[in-house]
């Protein structure tokens, strides 16, 4: 099936006075219709920026400096602001971490939903309002017919995030970009929101790009996952494979350092050091200073995504031409 979204060799740069920083470097992936792609990484890995680039909301002075973003085969990375605004909402819905930044505090949630529905679907007022109430019911807001006339501040955090989800979905976009949609929520509320997002995506056949640092959320929601590190994709593949048998030493370290809930371990696996700053990304593989498997080639040549088993990893361990053999798959579970 032709992918709904295709990102090819995306490069995002930030000009600063000390030179141009490359925040995303050669990021490529695609999302099939109805698929949920999880994008995971630690802070500064560039996962949120990937989402922002796709919805055309890169914060200045950030700019797309190379590559293409295609939605249904049409390029959207070079559109003007007005054109992009029409695509946002109608074809791509966005959900952010903090629901308060998405909702306008001066309008009732109903007015905001109705406006979006009318703008993008061209329905009349009464019909749009009926739809708005329908969406609020669908995202699980009790007494939706009354709450539709409430202002955002009258909702609790979890309920507000539900409203944001309704707002992102109400124009029936084909793709949703959700950036840390549950991070600001408590665990018990998180579970409700995840279940809701997952159910809606499945029922409506909506594709989703789910950006989060929480591997648990990805494991539970995504079909495929892309692990990002220092503005590059380190590994991508089916979620089960990447979680259980990570191939890239970074993803392996990341999975192993997550404290398990079901047992106590004496010493958690850890990755020493920290992710490099954008101004100091090492030559070759960006992970090489922290990598336990590092060898000569990693220091000079940047690895490309190489197929290994069911996943693809940007690691020279998996190139037959390298002088080194693959390590054993991570023992896990």
């Amino acid at each position: 099936m032709a992918p709904l979204l295709e990102v090819r060799d995306l490069r995002v740069e930030f000009p600063t006075r000390r030179g141009v920083l490359t925040a995303l470097d050669g990021v490529s992936f695609s999302i099939a219709p109805g698929e949920v792609l999880g994008v995971v990484g630690e802070s500064g890995a560039g996962k949120s920026m990937t989402g922002a680039a796709i919805i055309g909301l890169l914060e200045p002075p950030g700019r797309i400096a190379g590559g293409q973003i295609l939605l249904n085969g049409k390029r959207i990375d070079n559109l003007r602001y007005e054109q992009m605004r029409r695509i946002r909402g109608r074809e791509i819905g966005a959900i952010f971490q903090d629901p308060l930044t998405t909702l306008n505090p001066l309008y009732t949630v109903g007015e905001q939903l109705v406006e979006t529905i009318q703008t993008h679907l061209g329905l009349d007022g009464a019909e749009a309002r009926k739809r708005a109430i329908g969406w609020l019911e669908m995202v699980g807001i009790p007494a939706a017919a009354q709450r539709v006339d409430s202002y955002p501040h009258e909702f609790s955090g979890g309920m507000r995030q539900r409203v944001v989800i309704a707002l992102a979905l109400c124009a029936e976009p084909k793709l949703i970009v959700a950036d840390e949609p549950t991070t600001a929520l408590d665990v018990s509320i998180q579970a409700q929101v995840i279940a809701l997002l997952k159910g809606l995506a499945r029922d409506k056949g909506t594709s989703m790009m789910l950006v989060t640092h929480d591997m648990g959320v990805i494991a539970e929601t995504a079909d495929r996952v892309a692990v990002m590190y220092a503005g590059r994709i380190a590994e991508t593949g089916p979620v089960r494979e990447v979680v259980k048998h990570p191939k890239h030493p970074y993803s392996a370290g990341l999975m192993a350092s997550i404290p398990p809930l079901d047992r106590k371990v004496e010493h958690l696996a850890q990755i020493d050091g920290a992710m490099p700053r954008l101004s100091a990304i090492p030559r070759g593989c960006a992970f090489n200073p922290r990598c336990p498997e590092v060898f000569a080639r990693c220091l000079v040549e940047r690895p490309v995504l190489l197929a290994t088993g069911a996943t693809e990893a940007a690691c020279w361990l998996y190139d037959a031409a390298s002088e080194k053999h693959a390590p054993e798959a991570m023992p896990h579970g």
């Binding site: 665990v187 579970a191 648990g216 494991a219 539970e220 809930l261």
Partner: peptide, 16 residues
């Protein structure tokens, strides 16, 4: 129950 666990890939949780 509510905590997403890595091992639970694909399992439906019961939210509070």
């Amino acid at each position: 129950e509510a905590i997403p666990d890595l091992e639970m890939t694909g399992r439906q949780r019961i939210p509070v």
